[in-house]
Amino acid sequence: MSDPMRIRAQLKDGGVTEVRVLMAHIMETGLRKDASGATVPAHFIQSITATHGSKTVLNAQFGPAVSQNPVMNFSFKGGAKGDKVTVSWTDNKGAKRSDEATIA
């Protein structure tokens, strides 16, 4: 299983929770060739879901053009300090990862 995500969720003025996520993933495009000339197969995160309580606050789909170790920023209303924000991703090989953070 891959390394944990780093998630930071902060409550800002106006009741908006700002979430920053750093995912550890190679994000291989499938176009690159290795030293022997063989194409490196694509391996990238496809879908990301962020939830706050039972509510989905963001759904994202990534293509292979997103940089290695993807970063994602977004913000949503309705969060409170101490609430949990959960972020999950799944990649094109079926690997999954889910991590959560507490809103500060």
Binding site: V57, A60, A65, S75
Partner: peptide, 27 residues
Amino acid sequence: VEKNPNSLAATFDIPAGTEPNVGTRVK
């Protein structure tokens, strides 16, 4: 990204309550 081999880099679905303001990093 227009001149990438495939244009689309990422999509974000914005449910009600989420700000229409997202950021990421692309190649």
